[in-house]
């Protein structure tokens, strides 16, 4: 479904990704594991079109999307739920969700999607008329995920969904992610909580210094010595 081939990317003259290759099959849950700054976020931002690859190819459903601007990428069914929520703080939760369905494709079915999404997030339904900026961190993360679903994505990318949240909220976030996975959406997830993520992932990639150094099934990586030492602190 999604293929990255020899992708190089960075900011200005600083190269972060040095030729990485990743594939995500339809219906799969794939995770990228790596230290802070290894290039995980940059990978997702490059797929989303926010960072332009300097070399390499990104294809989605057979089409080259490596040079598309972000709004074109979204229109093709790839949605990124960004690190740090990035809600529109002075808009109501309802308007935030409406913005999630901005693409023409999603806009047509917005009312139905909204109902489906709110069924998944009963707590969000209670807060619809509040300003997003007034919510707690955990609530904001839920709204961010709900907003991402509003676009009816084929591929949903999570960037650090549990970042900066209290442990108890982290558990709720993971429960939601698992429920979304269960609906059959294809998921690419980057997350500092390596143990939990590898447990739900079909496959994982280990990213170090902008290069993929290892890839295997989630379960195998969990047992791998290098992964355990470097990312689980064992």
């Amino acid at each position: 479904m999604l293929t990255l081939h020899e992708v190089h990317a960075g900011y200005g003259r600083t190269t972060i990704l040095h030729g990485i290759g990743i594939t995500v099959g339809a219906g799969e849950v794939v995770t990228i594991v790596g230290a802070n700054g290894a290039g995980k976020t940059t990978t997702l931002r490059t797929i989303a079109g926010l960072v332009r690859p300097t070399a390499g190819r990104i294809t989605f459903e057979g089409e080259d999307i490596g040079r598309l601007p972000p709004h074109e990428v979204v229109a093709r069914g790839i949605t990124l739920i960004p690190e740090g929520r990035q809600l529109f703080p002075f808009m109501t939760v309802r308007d935030n969700l409406r913005m999630g369905a901005y693409t023409p494709h999603a806009r047509d079915r917005m009312a139905r999607t909204m109902d489906e999404v709110l069924d998944l997030f009963p707590r969000v339904r209670e807060k619809l008329e509040q300003h997003a900026g007034s919510l707690s961190g955990g609530e904001q993360q839920m709204v961010a995920i709900a907003r991402g679903l509003m676009s009816r994505p084929k591929l949903l990318m999570f960037d650090e969904p549990s970042l900066g949240l209290a442990p108890i909220i982290v558990k709720q976030v993971f429960d939601v992610v698992e429920r979304i996975v269960a609906t059959g959406v294809t998921v690419l997830i980057v997350e500092q909580n390596v143990f939990r993520t590898l447990s739900i992932a079909d496959r994982g990639y280990v990213l170090e210094n902008g290069e993929i150094v290892m890839t295997d099934t989630g379960a195998t990586l969990l047992r791998d010595d290098h992964v355990r030492r470097a990312y689980l602190g064992i």
Partner: peptide, 15 residues
Amino acid sequence: IEAYLGEDFVHAHSA
């Protein structure tokens, strides 16, 4: 452990 390292850290260490 509860606030930061997580049970996983401990499990991993005892494993």
